[in-house]
Design a protein around this nucleic acid. Structure first.
Length: 407
RNA sequence: CGGGGCAUAGUGAAACGGCUAUCACGAGUCCUUUGGGAGGAUUUAUUCUGAGUUCGAAUCUCAGUGCCCCGACCA
């Protein structure tokens, strides 16, 4: 994509009042636009990142044998009265209408699957969706980390017995870690014991260490697991040590064994006459984007992991007033496009070199390729990875091979 | 929902109760510029809303709304 074509602009100034890094950089870089507290538009760059995160999550969900669906956001009151959760304050209700906006989907997915799961042979089954959730947060905050409207992946599984749920639950844990590893968050994300278990003593959260986190967790350096402050009793529940490390962290996922809490009210029973056993598993997609920004940045901007960067390559021409440069950089852009690379091409002649380089740092694309008078004299371009200080000259006739190896 | 702070151009800021509300950046036009946020010329406002005090309000008072931060809350 040519940068002159992008309708968004970067902002030099930090938005007034925004303290959190993810809000500052995502707004300044033109990834998101804040409509209201906790309510954001995803702009072209931001949407590209979100789609990439979604696809990583999808591939892991599909590998679990879960089937993707898309449930409505507008929920009939009746479904929520069945479980007694219509009065929950988190739910936005439509005034004078028997509808509310979905903040979770147990009340929809349970009767849905009930209509199709007719015998033990249909079990187990799991479905997931990636969809907008609405939560009437008493206090939205920290940019994308806690919103009133946000994108979430939610997975629901139905089982005939507890053992089957337990097995599946362990597989989901693995899938979740695969996701965090692909986002380069693997080393700072911990399986964390937390409250909220309906059927089990604990639920499990996935917590990513960053100072922007609103949760306090205690990490056992030996067992590599953590305990949320809300259930912490001073010891590692696995090895018993009291030498744990206190850290701030962002909850980037949460998995629950729900048991029969939602199947029972709907009389969703198995062959044996007992309610089915259910699990639910959530990942906030847009929160994950904010978390990555919090975890990977420097004073100049974002440093995206290759897997979710909006583009793989940022091609920048400097001295674009020079016709030879303009033609050559255009030519390189076309070749890279043809070879299938995702390229953002800064073809703006009206911007100075410093402005373009600062924009590039802010936007944070992993690979930067610069073409200028200086490099052209060597029949080369300059290559530099975001987050590294080193740059090197690459001959233009070797560029495609170089990029195949390095992006 | 409790506490604190803030609200002026697209963005960020300035302005003692008193002159035509100022500056920088951005954006538009023209010219010159291109290796870390360039220069000149020129254009760019219902000071959040409503009431009040006053000869006079961006500035003071009251109410509302919104935003940010702390806390409570967060299947």
């Amino acid at each position: 994509m040519k940068q002159s074509f992008l309708f968004t602009k970067t902002q030099k100034e930090t938005p007034a009042g925004e303290i959190s890094i993810n809000a500052q950089y995502l707004i300044r870089g033109g990834f998101v636009d804040k409509l209201s507290s906790g309510i954001y538009t995803l702009l072209p760059l931001g949407l590209r990142v979100v789609k990439k995160i979604q696809n990583i999550v999808r591939s892991e969900m599909d590998a679990l044998g879960a089937q993707e669906i898309l449930m409505p956001s507008l929920h009939p009151k009746e479904n929520w009265e069945t479980t007694g959760r219509w009065e929950v304050e988190e739910m936005y209700k439509i005034e004078n209408e028997p509808y509310g906006l979905g903040w979770t989907h147990e009340e929809i997915v349970t009767p849905l699957l009930q209509r199709f799961i007719l015998s033990g042979r249909d079990l187990p089954k799991s479905v997931y969706q990636i969809q907008t959730k609405f939560r009437n947060e008493p206090r939205a905050k920290s940019g994308l980390l806690r919103g009133r409207e946000f994108i979430m992946k939610d997975l629901y599984s139905f089982h005939e017995n507890q053992d089957d749920l337990d097995d599946y639950y362990e597989k989901v844990k693995e899938a979740y870690f695969n996701i965090y590893r692909k986002l380069d968050l693997g080393d700072i994300t911990y399986l964390t014991l937390a409250s909220g278990g309906t059927f089990s003593k604990y639920s499990h959260e996935f917590q990513t260490i960053t100072d922007a986190g609103e949760d306090i967790i205690y990490i056992c350096p030996k067992c590599k697991i953590a305990v949320n402050k809300e259930v912490f009793d001073g010891k590692c529940p696995q090895c018993g040590t009291d030498r744990l490390e206190e850290k701030k962290a962002i909850e980037v996922g949460n998995i629950f064994k729900l048991g029969t809490k939602y199947t029972a009210p709907f009389d969703f029973n198995g062959q044996n006459g007992n309610p089915l056993i259910m699990g639910c598993y959530g990942i906030g997609i847009t929160r994950l984007m904010g978390t990555v920004v919090e975890a990977m940045n420097d004073k100049n901007g974002i440093i995206w992991p290759k897997t979710i960067a909006p583009f793989a390559i940022h091609l920048i021409q400097i001295d674009g007033g020079d016709e030879a440069i303009a033609l050559k950089s255009e030519e390189i852009y076309e070749i890279l496009q043809e070879k299938g690379f995702e390229v953002l091409y800064d073809n703006r002649n009206e911007k100075t070199a410093g402005e373009k380089l600062n924009d590039a740092d802010l936007i944070g694309i992993p690979m930067r390729i610069i073409i200028s008078k200086k490099t052209l004299l060597e029949n080369s371009v300059e290559s530099k990875e975001r987050g590294s200080e080193k740059s090197s000259l690459v001959r233009i006739d070797e560029l495609v091979n170089y990029l195949k190896k390095n992006v």
